[in-house]
Computed example of a mutant assay.
Amino acid sequence: MPTTPSHPALDPEHALARLPELTVVDVRTPGEFVSGHLPGAHNIPLDTLHRALPVLRAAPGELLLVCASGVRAENARAVLAGHGIPAATLTGGTRGWAGRGQELHRPTGPARTAWAMERQVRLAAGTAVLAGLALGQLHPAWLLLSAGVAGGLVFSALTDTCAMAALLARLPHNRPRAADLDATLAALAASGSARG
Rank of each mutant, 00 (worst) to 15 (best):
P172V: 07
G126S: 12
A179E: 10
R72W: 04
A15D: 02
A125S: 09
H37T: 01
A76L: 09
V149K: 00
P39N: 02
P54V: 00
H42M: 07
H173P: 06
R28A: 00
A116H: 15
A88L: 12
P172K: 05
L10R: 02
P5K: 11
R18M: 13
S193W: 09
A87N: 13
H139Y: 13
T159G: 02
E103R: 14
E74R: 15
E62H: 08
L135Q: 04
L90A: 01
W97P: 00
H50C: 07
A52W: 03
I44G: 01
L90Y: 02
T184L: 00
L167F: 08
H173G: 09
T4C: 09
R95H: 13
M117A: 03
R112P: 10
L53A: 03
T108L: 12
G84E: 10
L80K: 15
R195E: 13
D11L: 08
R77G: 15
L16M: 09
G84S: 10
L80A: 15
G192T: 08
L167R: 01
A178K: 08
G151M: 09
L19C: 02
M164Y: 01
G36M: 04
G126L: 08
V121G: 08
S146Y: 00
L65K: 11
A150K: 05
D160M: 05
A190D: 11
A165H: 03
L53W: 06
G126N: 08
A78H: 15
N43A: 07
V27R: 07
P54C: 05
L63G: 10
P172Y: 05
I44T: 00
R119Q: 15
W142G: 05
A73P: 07
L181V: 04
A41Y: 03
P39M: 00
P8M: 12
A166R: 15
A128E: 01
A52Q: 02
L185V: 00
A189Y: 00
L158H: 13
P30I: 04
A166I: 12
P12W: 01
L158F: 12
V154C: 07
A163N: 03
A58P: 08
P39K: 05
D26P: 00
P172I: 07
E62K: 08
E62A: 12
T94W: 00
P172L: 06
A9R: 15
V55D: 01
L185H: 01
A131S: 07
C162L: 05
T3D: 14
H173F: 13
D47K: 12
L53D: 06
G93Q: 06
R77M: 14
T113G: 14
Q102C: 11
N174M: 08
A87V: 14
L144N: 10
L145M: 09
A128N: 02
G82E: 12
G152P: 06
S156L: 06
A88V: 13
M1Y: 11
L65S: 12
L19N: 01
P2V: 14
P20F: 04
A15M: 00
E118M: 14
A87W: 13
L65M: 11
L123C: 11
R119S: 12
A169V: 01
T4K: 14
A150C: 09
V34D: 15
L65T: 12
A59H: 06
R57P: 06
L135K: 04
A73W: 08
P2E: 10
A114G: 14
N43K: 02
L63W: 11
G151D: 09
M1T: 14
P172T: 05
G152R: 07
